[in-house]
Design a protein around this nucleic acid. Structure first.
Lengths: 344, 344
DNA sequence: TTGAAAGCGTTACCAC
DNA sequence: GTGGTAACGCTTTCAA
């Protein structure tokens, strides 16, 4: 292992003070170009690299952003990570990951990282804070961006879940469907998400707006768990009962839709002939499944979160909090069509 | 923002020295239980949290592990992250992400992080170092685990790519297929991966072992790019030419297989009647596609990498490097069957 | 069992 | 434009 050289070594070699080395290497003003060149040469020769911890301790900045999420192995999270990273890395910021286990109060983990001065800012994905948590959050004093949820302070990035689900339901209603099913569910953990409920409300709204009776048209399944397996389970249960199947299904996520689709096909139902299905997200594979879906640009959301953090950091803490609604759109593919027997 | 209390504040309140506070809070020996209790009470009252940077600067440990990969938005990476996190977090280690852009020498980024004392250890996923790089790597002096590649120093975790691909090919040969295609490709970047070649060799070996002529039986497509889109492209090209299609396809990844499958079905081919397909990985959705595949436990690989790092850290730098081959297995599903016309 | 003090490697303020 | 030096907040000898 090469011996580690410090700023002092560089100073000696260049024949200047450590203060000057520090300025020169960071490109600060008030350093003659001659001195600067000499310092840079010395640094290069000694293979000097700034100690991030010492620098951070002295300057107060860590150049690290913490990403908090319930888990990191889902498609959604990996897209956000990617978008964030794309913005943060070029700006010289690192990304630190914190998975919030279901059992632990999310705010506790946050506390330690922020108070321990490990991160300069925080991005939360689908972390839902309760009243008690919020008390503890204010004191953090570092910029915070929430994705998928909202808070009275800090930036937030969401989509219009209600409108998205409405659009999906409208699409099915216009095709002639009159027996709809919404498949949602709380997310995989106990950090209860309002997202699923909002989407259910959106579906109901579309039905009402079409002059129809929600009680007659809509059925809601709340055990889809936003997962592949959950979508399967819902479909299986549906087929085991005696009542007729709905003709149109709106799923709160593409992964649930894929599970449902898969199970439906396995048991001989054809999509969209027997059953129309709309998903949510526009997963990479939605296209392969020919899945009609509500597209949201998740990578772009990650980028936006990164930019918000960076801007807030640059501007000081006084930036007014913004709530941004990311665009969504209906992508029509092959999983939706008029119902086989149009009510007549 | 609550005023930050330091170890000095705690010491004053508890009426002891900072040295004692440091020992007491970290549970070191030689602290009377009375003192310890008093210190803990003071820390609690002041809501004291250790400054990670200062602690790290003084102790030399960062309690952070760096994860290096070409990108983070693929299924494979997200599984590794998840496995790593599951082991690291309980041990008090954080995970820092570095995406290696194709244009930059990977080793440069590593240098800065390690030399900058930002991480205690490094895990690399599918990062392939060339001779020149290796020179610079030795000096790092922190534990390193490579996933998917090998190095003469540092731990490595791979699967037997050759044997996996052999098993896939054998499966098809036993079903009676005599015209095979292997779909691979360098990975999405210029960091050339030997993985694809190894798998191609495995297929060839199975053919030879079966007493057949590789030149007659095997065709290789190296533009699958390990992606969905790549798999599609290969299938499309195949159908545009005049020669007959192969009857059995082995794909270097499930994502390529899914793309290929999707394209095949779109153009009216049925699987497995017209075409048998075997994938690689056992992607979460492989099951949905009914895809026969070579399963590798990626989450387990992530866990193992975490444990190796932790063990090495605990043991000091003297642990002998290990190369571990993770288990794989053939999972038979519905995408493979005997060819329609058995050669007779 | 406890305390004093010397680092750890920077940054930033204040003279010069 | 440059240098001296006090922080930054903790860990870790070494004495007591």
């Amino acid at each position: 292992m090469a011996s580690r050289s410090t700023i002092g070594d560089v100073a000696s070699l260049a024949g200047v003070s450590v203060a000057t080395v520090s300025r020169a290497l960071r490109g600060l003003p008030n350093v003659s170009s001659l001195t600067k060149a000499r310092v840079e040469a010395a640094a290069l020769e000694l293979d000097y690299i700034v100690d991030a911890r010492a620098s951070s301790l002295a300057s107060g900045r860590t150049h690290t952003i913490g990403l908090v999420a319930p888990w990191f192995d889902s498609w959604y999270e990996s897209k956000v990570i990617s978008g964030l990273e794309g913005v943060l890395a070029p700006a010289g910021y690192d990304l630190l990951l914190y998975a919030i286990k279901t059992s632990v109060r999310p705010v506790q983990t946050l506390r330690e990282r922020v108070r321990g001065r490990t991160v300069d800012g925080i991005v939360c994905i689908d972390v839902f804070f309760d009243e008690e948590d919020v008390e503890g959050l204010r004191e953090f004093g570092v910029p915070m961006v929430l994705i998928g949820s909202r808070l009275s302070f800090g930036h937030s990035l969401t989509i219009d879940n209600l409108r998205g689900a409405s659009a999906a339901a409208e699409h099915l209603l216009q095709l002639g469907h009159r027996r709809l099913l919404y498949v949602g569910g709380t997310q995989k953990s106990e950090l209860v998400s309002p997202v699923s409920d909002l989407r259910a409300q959106g579906v109901a709204k579309a039905i009402t707006d079409a002059g129809l009776d929600v009680a007659e048209v809509l059925e809601v399944a709340n055990d889809g768990a936003f997962s592949l397996a959950g979508g399967r389970k819902v479909m299986r249960r549906l087929q085991q009962r005696s009542e007729p199947l709905p003709t149109g299904v709106i799923c709160g996520s593409d992964e649930m839709a894929m599970g449902l689709l898969s199970e439906a096909r396995t048991s001989g139902l054809s999509v969209p002939e027997d059953l129309s299905v709309v998903g949510f997200d526009d997963h990479d594979l939605a296209d392969v499944f020919g899945l009609t879906t509500i597209r949201q640009g998740i990578y772009a959301t990650g980028e936006m979160a990164g930019r918000l953090i960076l801007d807030t950091l640059a501007a000081g803490e006084d930036l007014p909090y913004s709530h941004i609604e990311m665009p969504i759109s209906l992508v029509e593919r092959d999983s939706t069509a008029p119902p086989r027997v149009v009510a007549g």
